[in-house]
Design a protein around this nucleic acid. Structure first.
Lengths: 219, 219
DNA sequence: TAAAAAATTTAAGTAAGCTTAAATTTAAAT
DNA sequence: ATTTAAATTTAAGCTTACTTAAATTTTTTA
């Protein structure tokens, strides 16, 4: 049996809420791999404890207190990621799962110390912003999905989605990483697959892949 | 509500079993701060899963499989301690509780990598031996409790008990640490308290304290 | 806009890891 | 060798975080 904790729910809500600050139970269930019923249950508890706003059949949102807690979980997660990558030397595509466990098992003092050790970075190894100790979010650079590039465009990788380690391993394998240059050679209309160049090598990538890599277009 | 896990039980059994490899439920309950009933319950489960040997009202012991698992938990715990101390810079008297949580949340690969980073040390910051990846236990140096010293003896600290952070903070405060020299000036018969010298300073310590610090007598 | 599909909630039930209280067994003390 | 005390086990019950199945509500589609 799984044992996803309240902290996981809060972090996932924070990460996937829409521009109105709301999220549907369905999405939480999917992200945490639990049933919808489990989500309903947990959201009731979180609301009771003042971390979420909830009305039956309506969207879920974080209260101020929930937002603060969740942001801190995001901080813990991303600081572990960058620490594991930079100090411990774990490849950037392998840090997510480890961080997922460690984030629940460390004191704020430890997190702050790790933050200091890596020099208070503003982004984690996937390009996601790291909230400061005071809860301030660094501005995310402007980016578009790789799938939105036009033929002939050159771009620089700014962020990648970290939802799946298999995906990360694959893109790491073809040389995609932060700050790497990607050029779009061809795009096929029938399946939206693309031919790209990375470090002089050409690769065919699917639309799905391209939707999860984010770039800044070079002028 | 607490949630001590099977891994905690195994580590505690390993650490506190007597020379016959046995431990009483009572001691486990005390070390984990749970009721005796909880221990009975858990030992039944562990025995069912093949980690412990158990017969009602008799001592508890680890099976081979339990021993291996437990030794690995000890390894995880002690490697986290030494890593937190040496790389992260947390004082040696403050690493125990943090390690207590982290030990359950890290993969063996991570632990092995941390081990490598700190140079495969053989002892943790309290002087306890760290099992190798292959499960080999470094020999513990010969030592006696500080309380067993004779007046006039000079000694070097080899190990301290890490059962209580308050205790560790206190002894750290008076300058006790691994490899530090301690000289016994006086011992009072009526309460077994002692007057000692550390780095030229004199301190009065209780018998209880002296029983939890272990030293090698200097010739 | 009515029917079908999807999402959400409720209900009932499970497993883990505890608790206290009572019953039983073992160990200690007279 | 009894009696008393301590340790251990059993019993009953609690909370957390799940599950599946059924009921309800919302959304989509024809």
């Amino acid at each position: 049996m799984k044992n996803i904790s309240k902290e996981d729910y809060l972090r996932i809500i924070f990460k996937h809420k829409n521009s109105d600050g709301e999220i549907k139970p369905n999405l939480i269930a999917e992200k945490l791999s639990v049933s919808n019923a489990a989500v309903t249950d947990m959201i009731k508890k979180l609301s009771h404890e003042g971390y979420t706003n909830y009305q039956k059949y309506k969207g879920i949102s974080l209260t101020n207190s929930g937002e603060t807690y969740a942001r801190n979980m995001v901080r813990r997660h991303r600081i572990w990621e960058i620490f594991l990558n930079q100090v411990v030397g774990i490849p950037w595509d392998k840090v997510h799962d480890e961080a997922n466990r460690l984030e629940h098992s460390s004191s704020d003092e430890l997190i702050n110390r790790l933050d200091e050790l890596v020099g208070f970075p503003r982004y984690d190894p996937h390009g996601d912003p790291i909230p400061s100790k005071e809860g301030k979010m660094p501005k995310q650079k402007k980016y578009i999905a790789l799938s939105k590039l036009k033929e002939g465009d050159s771009s620089v990788v700014v962020r990648v989605n970290d939802f799946d380690e298999k995906f990360l391993s694959y893109i790491a394998g073809i040389g995609i990483k932060l700050n790497e240059t990607i050029k779009l050679l061809e795009k096929r209309d029938f399946d939206k697959s693309m031919l790209i160049t990375i470090k002089g090598k050409q690769w065919n990538i699917s639309e799905k892949l391209a939707e999860n890599v984010f770039v800044e277009v070079k002028k």
